[in-house]
Amino acid sequence: MKRQTGMTLIVKTITRLTVWLIILYGFYIILHGHLTPGGGFGGGVIIALAFLNVLLAYGREFTDKWLKISFLEKLESLSIILFLLLGITALLAGKLFLENFIGKGHLYHLLSAGTIPVFNIIIGIKVAMSLFLVIWILSGLKLEEGEEA
């Protein structure tokens, strides 16, 4: 029989049901960052906590299969490059570095405020991936069997 990893069946079932709702809430917070409280930082942490929920309930092996950690690392490094590229695009459009170069739209609409929602999405990806990577690295650490010097 396969070795049981993670927590009990109750925890696993509840996690399977709720993790997608938590991720959806994180996306909601990120996308409405320019209208309501929240934004890239808060939403990114919510998504990272959803992944952490899976990691705590199911164990390391399942999470590695489900999420592909090497892909997450690349996504993390890519997001900061995207941030810079968006700033340079503003230069090409004849504005200053990191300035808003898309139309402003109507106030209180979801698709408004030019580059602010785009920056929010990039920062959300960045924060979520980097915080989950820290938890991933720390969870693989075994202090007790650590070698001497």
Partner: peptide, 26 residues
């Protein structure tokens, strides 16, 4: 800026350099 959330408009439009440095530190 066209954003209703003024905190968001400051960190991502008026002071986007600040956010760039913050992302780099993180």
């Amino acid at each position: 800026t066209g954003a209703a959330n003024l905190v968001s408009s400051i960190i991502l439009d008026y002071r986007a350099y600040d956010t760039l440095g913050e992302v780099t530190v993180l």
